[in-house]
Write a protein that binds this DNA or RNA. Structure first.
Length: 666
RNA sequence: GCGCCCGUAGCUCAGCUGGAUAGAGCGACUGACUACGAAUCAGUAGGCCGGAGGUUCGAAUCCUUCCGGGCGCACCA
């Protein structure tokens, strides 16, 4: 509702300026006044035009207002302050527009986009940092879908990297295990932890410890021993990359088993994927060879004959100023002098595939089954029948901010190849890491060096085995929630309580990860994450439950109330001091599409989180001031019930976008 | 050395493309439950928006510079 009125006013102002002053203003600044008393929309346009028109701002404002004429949806315009034009909405019309559900569903906008998120190295259990990534990515997917886009969700799997190699080294040389042993161990872990709440014996947990142990092993021997161990590490890595040997087989077993665990962990949060492209296929299907030819042909890559990069194929970094004839020592190496390709090179090939520009495709086979769809994984030779992935118009890579340089290199390469449209629709959805507060680290029993104890936060490190595992955190949240639910829901059985507790716990976790804007470091602390009061997911869920309880006792349904609402004259209930907070609730409810648009344009899901919280807050305020069920005026009671129904509809919808369920009770 | 991010209330964070008295939550202090279930609400205290210049009718927001903190800048993945 708000978005439509905002656009309508903007267009009207534009045409007035055109007609009256012969001015073509590109976009009219429209904002929300600081107080509802001043109206619902405002523009400082007269202040801006004062200089060019050489008139006092208030005079200009007056002239504009007198030419605005009547505008559907608006009640009046007035001049305030130094020359603001404030618009008051026709409240009754606004309320009915909001209540009328038509036009709320997404209009398919035809864009096919791809969101890549999670992308955890498949060599250890997921931790809280990975949760932030997956929750941000999954929420953004939901936002794009709400806006009518067709979205595929990818989770890139680096199954041939040095991190997997380290765990392989651990199994081979620290544990002395063969491929058959590892296979048996995985089967044992899966059998043991199947249907078990306790994940301590799960394979990804086991790898978490082994990975930390191996990383230590590399540096804990004598100098010669360490050199030999490092050599072993790179031999192992190369054997995995090459494939077709027992080392590679172990790597495949590990990465597949850990990946399954990751998918299970994420499914607990309602996070699902469509496709899992793996590095092994990018290597073995020679994506790079094709990309290399394209990069040479377009001149993005050139062979360096001089300087420190002599013998390499390199590309100019974005923003670099290179003088002709001089050697660009700062150029990014894509192909090493020994002929092997770097990480960025492989990533360029992969991104050409994403946009359908490579001319080669993966093989596909089914990997994981969700209730309503399949998740596919890349293979060299796959099933004949499969959906088509890749070839999209826009991509979003949810990758932490530390990788902004390599991401910029890939974008630069696409642009250099002439794929400017693709480069423009390549978004590095960057976010800051989740770190631990020193206190939290000490509580977890980690050894925190003296010099780190005064820091605001300490980075988690898989290599050191330092961090909070995702499943542990979820378990802890669920048990803390269950304690509260047990106190309140004495009339419900264990299964119901468990379900409610899980909904609340996941809501708390997802909201916690979404309330911060992306480039703020989250200093993780159990006290904050386990909080269910104030600006939290459960606070919003509680507002939902309150509305549901009202309707349960009122003997009617939100749908029935809203259906009947169309024929009610709401105007009498929207005037006067007493009505301001009620109108505030409706107005907030009507801002949904504005906030969605803003959240997508800025790639910032936190806006939606904030919106849901504010609506819940305004509702709670309304709830305390206006007692619905005891209202004696029948017409007013219907109006108040409609208000509650709208809050329910909006909160359930927006919480759904955030991946947070709306419990029936709590 | 170069690049990116951050510095707002005791703590954790918002602050829309520069705009009208800078907002939340937590914590502190006062109050409100035989109930539309208080996982709630109302109220009080608390801020030269890191410092200094500049642009502008107007700056927490833009520019310059300095201070303080974080992260990147490999023929590692």
């Amino acid at each position: 509702m708000y978005l439509e009125l905002k656009n309508r006013l903007g267009a009207q102002l534009k045409s007035v300026l055109q007609a009256k002053y012969d001015l073509a203003v590109e976009s009219i600044p429209l904002e929300t006044p600081p107080d509802l008393k001043m109206g619902e929309l405002a523009t400082p346009i007269a202040l801006q035009l004062a200089r060019t028109l050489r008139k006092a701002p208030r005079v200009i404002a007056q002239e504009i207002v007198s030419s605005l004429g009547p505008l559907p949806g608006f009640a009046s315009f007035e001049i305030a302050g130094a020359g603001y034009i404030n618009a008051r909405l026709d409240r009754a019309a606004g309320v009915h527009a909001i209540a009328d559900a038509s036009g709320i569903g997404p209009a398919a906008d035809g864009v096919h986009s791809l969101v890549e998120h999670t992308s955890i190295n498949p060599n250890k259990a997921a931790h809280i940092g990975h949760l932030r990534n997956a929750i941000l990515g999954d929420t953004f997917v939901r936002l794009l879908r709400a806006a009518g886009q067709r979205v595929t969700v990818q989770n890139y799997i680096d199954n041939t990297g040095v991190q997997v190699a380290d765990v392989v080294v651990g199994f081979l040389y620290l544990e002395g295990k063969s491929a058959a042993d590892v296979r048996a161990l995985i089967a044992e872990c899966e059998a043991r932890s199947a249907g078990q709440a306790d994940k301590s014996g799960a394979f990804d947990y086991l790898c978490w410890n082994l990975y930390a142990r191996t990383s230590q092993w590399y540096v804990s021997g004598t100098e010669e021993e360490n050199a030999a161990r490092k050599k072993l590490r790179y031999e192992t890595l190369h054997a995995i990359e090459h494939g077709g040997n027992e080392t590679a087989e172990i790597a495949e077993l590990i990465s597949t088993a850990v990946l399954k665990r990751h998918l299970e962990t994420m499914l607990r949060l309602g996070i699902e994927y469509d496709f899992l492209p793996r590095e092994s296929e990018i290597l073995h299907l020679n994506f790079w060879a094709l990309a290399f030819e394209l990069l040479k042909k377009t001149g993005v890559l050139y062979f360096e004959n001089e300087g420190k990069n002599k013998g390499c194929w390199v590309m100019t970094r974005p923003g670099a100023d290179v003088t002709d004839g001089e050697t660009d020592e700062d150029a990014k190496v894509i192909v090493r002098s020994n002929g092997t390709v770097t990480y960025v090179g492989k990533d360029i090939a992969y991104h050409l595939w994403k946009f359908g520009l490579l001319g080669r495709d993966f093989g596909y086979r089914k990997f994981f089954t969700y209730p309503d769809h399949e998740c596919w994984i890349s293979t060299e030779e796959g099933e004949a029948e499969h959906p088509h992935f890749g070839g999209v118009q826009a991509i979003y890579n949810v990758i932490d901010s530390r990788q902004s340089d390599p991401q910029a290199n890939v974008i630069q390469a696409l642009r250099g190849m002439g794929h400017t449209a693709e480069a423009d629709h390549y978004t590095h959805f960057s976010y800051e890491m989740v770190a631990l507060t020193p206190r939290c680290a000490l509580d977890l029993g980690y050894d925190v060096p003296e010099e780190d104890r005064s820091r605001a936060y300490i980075e988690v490190s898989g290599r050191k085995g330092f961090g909070v595992k995702a499943d542990d955190l979820i378990d802890k949240l669920i048990s803390a929630t269950l304690e509260e639910v047990n106190k309140r829901q004495t009339g419900r059985d264990q299964a119901e309580r468990g379900q409610i507790a899980a909904q609340i716990a996941i809501g708390a976790l997802r909201y916690f990860m979404l309330k911060y804007t992306r480039n703020s470091v989250i200093a993780f602390d159990f006290k904050d994450a386990l909080s269910f009061e104030g600006e939290t997911g459960p606070y919003i869920q509680y507002a939902v439950v309150r509305v549901r309880n009202i309707f349960r006792k009122a003997g009617t349904t939100p749908e029935a109330v809203l259906a009947e609402f169309a024929s009610i004259d709401a105007a009498p209930f929207l005037v006067g001091e007493d009505a301001e907070d009620i109108w505030a609730v409706w107005l907030r409810a009507g801002r949904r599409s504005t906030v969605l648009e803003q959240g997508i344009a800025t790639s910032e899901p936190a806006y939606l989180a904030k919106h849901a919280f504010q609506l819940a807050q305004e509702f709670n305020n309304f709830y305390h001031r206006h007692h619905i069920l005891t209202e004696e005026n029948a017409a007013r009671k219907r109006f108040l019930l409609a208000t509650a129904a709208i809050v329910l509809r909006e909160l359930v919808t927006v919480l759904g976008w955030l991946g947070i369920e709306s419990p029936e009770a709590m």
